Amino acid sequence: MQQDVPELNSEQRRLYWIIGILASMLIANTFLKQIAGFSLDEKLVLLGFGLLMFVPRIGFLEWEDTRNLPYEIIFLFGAGFSIAAAFTNTGLAAEIANKLSFISSIPLFWMFVSVALFVTFSTEVTSNTALTSIAIPIFYEFAKVMPQSEGTLLLMVATVAASYAFMLPIATPPNAIVMSSRVIRIKEMAGIGLKLNLIGVTVLSVIAYTIWRLLL
Rank of each mutant, 00 (worst) to 15 (best):
S205M: 13
I192T: 15
L214R: 14
G37H: 12
V206E: 05
I73K: 06
N128E: 11
T210V: 12
Q12A: 15
L46I: 11
R182S: 14
G59L: 06
F75M: 09
F77Y: 09
I207G: 03
F166D: 09
I83S: 05
L168V: 02
W110D: 02
R67M: 09
L26A: 02
R13K: 15
S10P: 01
L153K: 05
S127D: 05
I21N: 00
A165D: 04
S10R: 11
I184C: 13
G48D: 04
P173Q: 05
I35N: 00
I207M: 14
N29S: 05
L40T: 02
L61N: 04
S205I: 08
Y209P: 02
I186S: 05
F77K: 09
R213N: 14
A28Q: 02
L76A: 05
P107E: 09
I211M: 13
F142L: 15
K187M: 13
F77S: 01
K187Q: 14
F166L: 15
P56F: 13
I207W: 12
E11G: 11
V5M: 10
Y16N: 11
Q34W: 03
T66F: 12
M189I: 10
I136E: 03
K144D: 02
K99C: 06
N128A: 03
I211S: 05
A130G: 14
L194N: 13
A23V: 15
D4P: 00
L8W: 08
P147T: 13
F118L: 15
F112D: 03
F77N: 03
K144P: 00
N98D: 07
S39C: 04
M156S: 13
L8F: 14
R13H: 11
E7L: 15
S114I: 11
S205F: 07
L117Q: 05
K195Q: 10
E72D: 11
G193K: 14
L51M: 15
N89C: 01
M167F: 03
F81P: 00
W212Y: 09
L52W: 03
F81R: 06
L40K: 05
M1C: 03
P173K: 12
F60N: 10
L15D: 04
T120S: 12
V125L: 13
L8R: 14
W212H: 11
A93E: 06
Y16A: 13
V45Q: 03
K187V: 15
F121G: 02
Q34E: 12
V201R: 00
L46Q: 07
S39Q: 14
P56C: 10
F49Y: 10
F77P: 02
P70N: 07
